[in-house]
Design a protein around this nucleic acid. Structure first.
Lengths: 148, 148
DNA sequence: ACTATTTTTGCAAATTACTTGCAAATCAAA
DNA sequence: TTTGATTTGCAAGTAATTTGCAAAAATAGT
């Protein structure tokens, strides 16, 4: 824990605890660690990155996956599939809706906040990105499943 | 091969062959089968679905993956990650740019052609979809990599 | 607080989409 | 058709993610 600002740390603790409670998840050490990391640093992170960012042996990788999946279920966290064989996870902050761009070569990930595609592409071009493609997918519950 | 319309079949053959040639890929039986399927039916298909749609033993699964990856490289085919542990593939028809919606429960995939998000979401709501989320990601070559 | 009940965790093994090494088959160029 | 390069099939390998199970921790009731 940070020795520099114990008050802020307490606030963070309370925030994490509240978020978990609101979503009906019990308060456990691994869940606080993982959610705490996602709140402090703004990802997206792979499960492996999370594992290595947390204190050694503080949390098993199976637990990390299980917690992340639960967080995604209750929409506390978003998943992206920026690389094909590895998911990335990020705190789902409703006030900071944004999207990602990944370099096809070096895999560096950046975020941006515009939300109209032509505008976004123009801005990306100005930033020097070449050969831009996008992928937009919607996820929802269809009429049949909503009734069943 | 279809006995109903041999002329159309020949045209299709020629189209497939031309597409492969244009992209600098040699003409092989598996490549023709896979691309042919993607041209005839409009996916997206998983590799497994492609395997089972082709005539028994006409093509190994390793070959299917290799061909699909080559098609993606030359931008003849697009990939989506609609389900988290399985890629879907679709012919990249520049005249029919579109996006997908997948039901979070039954995994049924539909396509639509609008390209502004609010409009899309409104239309999806009219179709009865609930709890709509979207995921938009850009892929490009960053300035550093373009120079290096 | 204490205990009982439920939930969660850690570990190790399993799963599964996807990839790869290699010898045999097929393709393309001349 | 022959020659050399590319591609294929097969079987084994890889790596992210999941799962079974017993032990540990969290919650609810008293």
């Amino acid at each position: 824990m940070s020795l520099l600002n114990p008050k802020k740390e307490l606030e963070r603790e309370a925030l994490i605890t509240n978020l978990l409670k609101e979503k009906g998840l019990s308060i456990t050490a691994p869940r606080k660690l993982i959610l705490g990391l996602l709140l402090k640093e703004h990802g997206p992170f792979s499960a492996e990155e999370i594992l290595h960012s947390l204190p050694k042996n503080s949390c098993d990788q199976a637990t990390i996956y299980r917690c992340l999946n639960q967080f995604v279920e209750v929409q506390l966290v978003n998943t992206s599939f920026l690389e094909k064989d590895m998911a990335h996870f990020e705190y789902n902050d409703p006030h900071h809706h944004h999207h990602h761009i990944i370099c096809r070569i070096c895999k560096k990930i950046e975020s941006f906040h515009e939300c109209l595609m032509e505008k976004i592409e123009t801005n990306l071009q100005r930033k020097g990105y070449k050969d831009i493609q996008h992928r937009l997918e919607f996820f929802a519950v269809c009429e049949t499943c909503a009734k069943g």
